[in-house]
Design a protein around this nucleic acid. Structure first.
Lengths: 215, 215
DNA sequence: TAGTGTGAACGTTTTCACAGCT
DNA sequence: AGCTGTGAAAACGTTCACACTA
């Protein structure tokens, strides 16, 4: 019994959500079957890449026909672990955190916004997106109570590393941060970072010295 | 005269903003010089990678000493084209667009939020982050007036492709989208996409089947 | 016929290791 | 003595092209 059942490349995993959305769109159009070409088109990738990605999931399409939309959707959702319906906590309910709470509460699958937390006494106790903002000092307790697996950091940069450490200590294993600092986490904890300023700067690069294509 | 002056790899460009921030942090601590090790630590990358990246910019550190913080910062800012102070337009002033406007108006270098645009008559005319929201039908005019180079799409998904096309037609060459759809753009236009739901799904992946490290 | 699954080629990105400069 | 800059190698990711199959 070898231990390397699934060795799905990180780059592939990062594309699965797009494929999933493409499948949802096709399902909404009452399509029962789809070719790699169609799916790739919707997902914005080349069809060989999509086929390669699906093959990593041990996919079984039908040659000459394509993939069964419903079945593939199921398979992908399970690969992504969406059945779990993970509890997500948002910490830092300022402008951005507030918007994220509303935006995400609007019911995508695979997770649910379970708690909101802030350090500002003026914010604590207010209601946002149907949830009452709790005190940041109770962070560990909230994480335990809601069995929080994923956290979104929308605090000021200065607080991010401190908050991150406390989240990890409390048992959170996935962190999405909007603070523009490199977070230090122990192995076993996933971090993804979204940095608006950086994204614009990267876009700016191509502007000043002529352009090319970009993703 | 060969035309290939700078052939900076895309992966390197994507890291420059992080380096720039690391430099700013060091500058704030009154450091005049920094080693690749220190910079790499702050930026959250390995030091060989940082050195390689800087070498693509034709960097000149001092052996045995390190890099001059102020000079490198200057060099990097100019490589990124931050001097230009590009005009950014945000389209779609809902929850998210509103937050982005406030968040970004707070003065990072390299760009400035020059205009806000929305399709909803109830939003048009309101003031957000010191700017009056303009009518989406005047999009092309606004782009011309403010010489908009970069646009942020925060509209509903359904509107994104349509809006994207109009932005490109109006002359925008860089687009940052929050809508979870693959945008089609002509060559020469850069697109970067930030998708909150996807990020969480990607994080969820490692949760259900044990973990590893992740960036 | 139409479309998957994949070996092999390719290109890119990262790491290693160390020569060379100050 | 210390740290940069970079050749050479390894790892990774993508594309190509086509054998195979329903």
């Amino acid at each position: 019994m070898s231990e390397h059942e699934r060795e799905v490349p990180a780059a592939t995993i990062a594309r699965l959500p797009r494929y999933l959305r493409a499948l949802d769109e096709l399902a909404g159009q009452a399509a029962t079957t789809a070719s790699s070409e169609q799916l790739a088109e919707l997902a914005g990738v080349g069809s060989p890449l999509l086929r390669r990605d699906l093959s990593h999931l041990g996919s079984h399409g039908v040659r000459g026909v394509g993939y069964d939309v419903a079945q593939l959707r199921e398979q992908m959702a399970s690969a992504l672990g969406l059945a779990a319906d993970l509890a997500v906590l948002i910490i830092g309910i300022g402008n951005l955190g507030h918007a994220l709470a509303s935006y995400m509460a609007g019911g995508r699958v695979g997770y649910r916004v379970a708690a909101l937390v802030d350090a500002d006494p003026r914010v604590v106790g207010t209601e946002v997106a149907g949830l009452t903002v709790e005190d940041e000092r109770d962070l560990a307790e909230v994480v335990r109570r809601e069995r929080v697996a994923l956290a979104v950091i929308a605090t000021p940069s200065e607080a991010a590393q401190q908050v991150c450490g406390r989240l990890v200590d409390a048992g959170v294993t996935g962190i999405l941060t909007f603070a523009p600092v490199a977070l230090r986490v122990p192995p076993g904890v996933g971090v993804r970072s979204v940095d608006l300023a950086s994204e614009l700067q990267i876009l700016a690069f191509r502007v000043h010295g002529e352009a090319g294509q970009g993703s």
